[in-house]
Nucleic acid binder design. Structure first.
Length: 1157
RNA sequence: GCCCAUGUGGCGGAAUUGGUAGACGCAGCAGACUCAAAAUCUGCCGUUCGCAAGGGCGUGAAGGUUCGAUUCCUUUCGUGGGCACCA
């Protein structure tokens, strides 16, 4: 019986799927464990062998934890909004939804082949309305929040309003604009627009005009982390600064907490370092300088107030507001010229020419408050407007840039650090003792910092100040394929949609080009953008209405109470009860309801949005389409009673009066003839369309009716926000959705997030260091502050998988030039030269060139008989990528190559090595389609099986390290699995395993393996775990051990790594019911028994002066003196001693013995 | 320029706390089985001197600490990654 991996793997994968073996419950007595992969963007290219590396690691760990008795959440989903799908749509006209769907199907089929233990019932997709409904909802929560610096957390806008009404913003500086200050009285006097504008400056998501990174080629703005060296990260298009209205996340308010949180999480140093760098916290002081003969003050930020006496000039950013005010008449012209020059320079030029020194003197002087020196004020590009105060005090002896500037413009340099400064370059030391420094003379620089700050604060001319490099994160994109903002603009006021109006679905478009004025494609859909409503009530009325909402709702109920048999509620608490009831109800679908819901959801029927169990004025219909005011009722049997019928009737009457139409079906109709049912519903929907609904639009609907815009009193010209959210919106919280993926009442039930808590292990690449990982930390902190989750760091431990690099192969094509009348060079025969000869030609080896030239000449004669005039005058070689799939090691498969690219090389000729082989060149590069070095996992799984593939990926090296892919080695792992198989079944003899009692030696092998696998799996050292399995199987094979007592526990150990073969063999040796790979509940995962490994003696390495010379077997329970005796008696030791006495003998129990001579 | 990671056979890598450097696998070489191939099995496999026994050298380089260093410290070089007029 041989190891038929393909059969076995298909069988078990089907079985796992059918029995839902990996379904996870939120309700378990077992301890929880959350293992998460960074979900993929489903690109069109499919998976290559680099992608599953992290997935395999996390799968092994999940399976291991499951066997160890944990309730493991191990989900997968897709980050399915994003630029590439939209770019593809622009090029091909295919809707992103379609291509995304297709790509997901490819990914899924590839993933399935590898045998992962994901709970696919929890799959999420960020582009699914059921998902982005909650992305929008969370956005609204953040919109409704501000950061209270006093409590250091996010709070609701309502609390801010309360504060404003009692004390203005006296104690709460406006983070958006520090200059805004007002009292309670002033606040109350502001009009609606003014108030809203101020609130916007506090909100944690806010809209404002600002400089953004505009990428013309992509037609969108980019976040700072999406711009690399002045070009877009995706596509490398130029990026320019542009003023536009944008949405932002006020991440700067969280800078300190994001920094502090790093201390509490297990990320690699490199990762933490990158985040720290990005946040860029620096401590220093801000101080004011008086400007000579002027009213103005100059505020600078410095981290080195100790160098105040070394200030030789000041520099302002060219954009600084003081520039115009202080420039002297004499310098005006020059400054203007300089400003024109600065404006002409693109961001890219500025970055590219960092070393170029430019600047201009303003003619103004600042006064050093400590020694009254007059300090010239310059402007220069190298000072950035956006950081600190946009102005610096320059200390040329201590700062290299200041030094270069001073040298360039001949500004005299003051030395305050004595010998530390050599006049040749600046020295940014903090070690020096200060000189020429007034009251700081003789003080060390480190100490002087706080002394200087104290003095500055004492004089009231400045204060201690912390600065951050991080900017608020741009949160809008002028793009189509993303979450629409649930925001409506009315007279410049951003009005959030109500929660029950979510999701605001992405409308269908046919064209993906940008809209007018740099807006996104959505701006082109006028029907969607413009919302025309009847004239609106005043803002004050609006407020009153909002408050009266609930009362109004219950008024309706009261009014109608007499007409119905006690079904409706009458008071506010009861109304709330109804809501709670609806929430409960929504979870349980009857069979018939389930059938029809599958056909109604997601606007499948005539594009109409249906809601299920959506409360309307105290009554909960089964399904309702709010836009069409159509209710669908599916009646269970109990509705057949007389009493029930009259009751239903009363309800129907009430609804009819309020403009609702109802259509009802029986369970049987739905179950047996869903088609007719849907036709009837569709007819109704279209009827409703035609009827006059004006009477219904008088807007006295209760809350939650879906048209609450009327309630908020907006009207006139009202437009939707047309930009969409960036790629990182959905990924900032998706890990929470997995915990409770089907909840349509909330983004994630608090019970679920309390149970699952933090992600215990998060596995993914390093490329998300300052993007996704920072934003998800931010969102989690905000949700924590608002009380929606119980932890403020999402990921407890992060493991970064390394990149798998491609191993490229090259062929060398002869590049030759032929002289001859009207000769078309492109007709020359193709000649490919094997590696070693090509190398010689490249290094201009004359012999090789001559020889190859001869071969080329022959070819030429053959190809063009009769053309005697042709002669070769130059040859060289061109290196070209060739597809790795038809290179065996380094040897090219010639036939395969000739068929490549539709036979482009069908007629190619070759110059071989001496042994008749064509050898290719090799280089390690990034894996990419264009380099023909990608390896598709499907092919390997087909050829060697998923188990081999999984173990080989792990065997390649540490998960966290980058390493080149080499398919060749996979055979070793495959051999190992076959060897394992042969411990159970021989190809010829069949069954060889037996039930004999294991010997001590065999048990020792097993338990040594148990111990090592436990340790290695826990510390993510999967490569050494695989080699441990190999050692174990080698040992057992050597011992000819085929005993079930040993082999069965081994299968348990192996099952996380190679689940299919373990399951198969497990079920074969335990025919009735093997739990291996099938049932973690009944798992009897082996435990390590240290007693079995206890030895009485050990072969000690004995070294002389630290060099091992021999081994001696010594009992473990022996004294130092006895050891010395034994060692000294040893022949080898005596030989080295040459009769002398040793100086010292070092004996470390269980380690070694060292004799020092 | 600054920060982080990293450097071990022909190759991927192992050595978990300072204690036998090179586990395990690939590639290679020699052999067994076979008509042959595949599969499988056995042996060799850092380098150098030596017939051998045995010895010298050896973890990028140089120095140091230590009885003992791939591991700790200092200096330096290479590679990969991040940040970069951030005052």
């Amino acid at each position: 019986m041989e190891y038929r991996f393909n059969e076995i793997e298909q069988k078990w994968q089907a079985k796992w799927k059918e029995n839902k073996v990996y379904k996870v419950s939120n309700d378990s007595a077992k301890p929880k464990y959350y293992v998460l992969d960074m979900f993929p963007y489903p690109s069109g290219a499919g998976l290559h062998v680099g992608h599953p590396l992290g997935y395999i690691a996390s799968d092994i760990y999940s399976r291991y934890k499951r066997l160890k008795g944990f309730n493991v959440l191990h989900p997968m989903g897709y980050d399915s909004f994003g630029l590439p799908a939209e770019q593809y749509a622009l090029e091909t006209g295919q809707h992103p939804a379609v291509t995304t769907e297709r790509n997901i199907a490819t990914f899924r089929s590839q993933l399935d082949k590898i045998g992962f233990s994901y709970d696919w019932d929890r799959e999420v997709r960020t582009s699914d309305p059921d998902f982005y409904k909650w992305t929008q909802w969370i956005f609204l929560q953040i919109f409704d929040s501000w950061f209270n610096r006093a409590t250091n957390k996010a709070e609701r806008i309502a609390s801010l309003l309360e504060i404003f009404e009692t004390e203005g913003n006296l104690h709460h500086d406006c983070p958006g604009d520090k200059s805004i200050q007002f009292s309670a009285g002033e606040w109350k006097a502001f009009n609606e627009k003014e108030q809203q504008d101020i609130l916007m400056d506090y909100r944690l998501t806010f809209s404002s005009y600002g400089e953004v990174n505009w990428c013309e080629a992509l037609g969108t703005v980019l976040a700072n982390d999406e711009v690399v060296n002045g070009v877009s990260e995706r596509g490398g298009h130029p990026v320019e600064k542009k003023k536009m209205r944008q949405w932002y996340l006020r991440i700067t308010e969280y800078a300190d907490r994001l920094l502090e949180g790093l201390e509490r999480i297990d990320f690699s140093d490199a990762m933490k370092e990158m985040q720290k760098n990005w946040i860029g916290k620096s401590q220093g002081a801000e101080m004011d300088f008086i400007i000579k003969d002027q009213q103005e003050h100059l505020k600078v930020y410095t981290t080195r107030p100790d160098t105040i006496f070394g200030v030789d000039f000041m520099v302002l950013a060219p954009e600084h507001e003081l520039v115009n005010k202080i420039t002297s008449a004499g310098q005006k012209k020059e400054i203007e010229t300089y400003l024109t020059y600065v404006k002409s320079r693109s961001e890219r030029e500025r970055l590219a020419e960092v070393k170029q020194i430019t600047g201009c003197f303003t003619g103004a002087y600042a006064i050093n408050p400590f020694d009254d020196r007059e300090i010239p004020i310059w402007i220069a590009e190298y000072v950035l407007a956006g950081y600190g105060t946009g102005a610096i005090m320059a200390v040329p002896c201590g700062d290299q840039r200041d030094f270069a500037f001073a040298k360039h413009f001949n500004i005299p340099i003051t030395n305050i650090i004595g010998d530390y400064y050599n006049g040749e370059e600046a020295n940014p030391t903090k070690e020096a003792i200060l000189q020429n420094s007034g009251f700081l003379n003789g003080v060390s620089m480190k100490g002087a910092i706080s002394i200087a700050i104290a003095k500055i604060e004492g004089l009231g001319i400045g204060n201690r100040k912390v600065n951050f490099r991080m900017r608020d994160a741009g949160f809008s994109r002028q793009r189509y394929w993303g979450e629409p903002f649930p925001i409506i603009w009315s007279d410049g006021i951003a009005i959030p949609l109500d929660a029950d109006e979510l999701p605001l679905e992405l409308p269908h478009v046919d064209k993906y080009g940008p809209g007018p004025n740099g807006e996104g494609p959505l701006a082109n859909i006028e029907d969607w953008v413009n919302i025309n409503l009847t004239p609106n009530p005043s803002p004050k009325e609006r407020e009153t209405r909002l408050q009266g909402e609930a009362e109004l709702a219950s008024d309706h109920l009261l009014e109608n109470k007499k007409d119905e048999p006690g079904y409706y509620n009458s008071s506010l608490p009861e109304w709330q009860n109804t809501l709670a009831f609806a929430k409960e109800n929504r979870k349980e679908l009857t069979e018939a309801e389930g059938v029809i819901w599958q056909k109604l959801r997601d606007r499948q029927l005539d594009g109409c949005k249906f809601r299920r169990q959506h409360p309307i004025a105290g009554y909960i219909p089964d399904f309702v389409c709010l836009e069409k005011k159509l209710i669908i009722e599916i009646d269970g049997e109990y509705h057949n009673s007389e009493e029930q019928k009259s009751f239903d009737e009363a309800r129907a009457n009430w609804l009819a009066e309020n403009g609702f139409e109802m259509i009802r079906f029986t369970n049987e109709e739905v179950k047996n003839n869903i088609k007719d049912v849907l036709i009837k519903v569709s007819q109704k929907l279209n009827e409703v369309e035609k009827t006059d609904r004006s009477k219904n639009e008088k807007s006295n609907q209760p809350s939650g009716s879906g048209s609450s815009l009327l309630w908020r009193g907006v009207g006139g010209e009202v437009k939707r926000e047309t930009s969409t959210m960036p790629g990182y919106a959905g990924s900032s919280w998706y890990f929470l959705r997995y915990m409770d993926p089907h909840n349509d009442q909330t983004f994630c039930d608090r019970k679920a997030s309390d149970y699952w808590g933090q992600v215990d292990i998060y596995i993914g690449g390093t490329e998300h260091a300052v993007g996704h990982l920072l934003y998800s930390r931010l969102w989690t902190k905000i949700l924590f502050d608002l009380g929606y989750v119980s932890h403020d760091e999402p990921f407890k431990k992060l493991v970064n998988q390394g990149m798998i690099q491609g191993s490229s192969r090259f062929v060398y094509r002869l590049a030759w030039s032929v002289t001859g009348e009207d000769f078309d060079q492109s007709l020359l025969p193709q000649l490919f030269i094997s590696k070693s000869i090509a190398d010689k030609i490249i290094s201009e080896d004359e012999e090789a060139i001559k020889e190859t030239g001869g071969i080329a000449k022959e070819l030429l004669i053959k190809a063009f008989p009769g053309r005697e005039d042709l002669s070769i005058f130059r040859i060289s070689v061109i290196e070209t990528h060739v597809d790795v799939s038809f290179v065996n090691g380094v040897e090219l498969d010639i036939n395969h190559f000739k068929n490549w690219r539709n036979g482009e090389y069908a007629d190619a000729q070759f110059v071989f090595e001496n042994d008749g082989k064509y050898i290719c060149g090799v280089e390690t590069e990034k894996m990419s389609k264009s380099k023909y070095n990608t390896v598709n996992p499907d092919v390997l799984v087909q050829k060697f099986g998923a188990d081999t593939f999984r173990m080989y990926e792990m065997f390649l090296g540490p998960v966290e390290q980058s390493k080149p892919w080499d398919t060749k080695g996979i055979e070793g792992v495959h051999r190992f699995l076959r060897k394992l198989w042969r411990l159970f079944y021989d190809d010829l003899k069949g069954k060889v395993w037996n039930e004999d009692k294991a010997t001590d030696a065999e048990l020792k092998v097993l338990h040594r393996t148990i111990k090592k696998i436990d340790e290695d799996t826990e510390r993510f050292s999967f490569n050494t775990a695989v080699s441990t399995f190999m050692i174990c199987v080698n040992d057992l094979a050597d011992m000819k051990c085929h005993k079930k007592e040993i082999l069965e526990p081994l299968l348990f150990l192996l099952s996380p790594y190679a689940p299919h073969i373990s399951a198969e063999l497990g079920s074969l040796i335990n025919a009735k019911s093997s739990p291996i790979g099938e049932d973690a509940e009944r798992s009897v995962y082996p435990t390590f028994n240290p007693a079995l490994l206890v030895e009485s003696a050990k072969e000690y390495p004995v070294s002389i002066n630290g060099k091992v010379r021999t081994n001696i077997n010594i009992a473990l329970d022996i004294t130092q003196a006895d050891v010395e005796q034994i060692v000294l008696k040893n022949e080898v030791v005596q030989k080295w001693l040459e009769g002398k006495a040793p100086k010292k003998i070092i004996y470390v129990k269980n380690k070694m013995v060292n004799v020092v001579i």
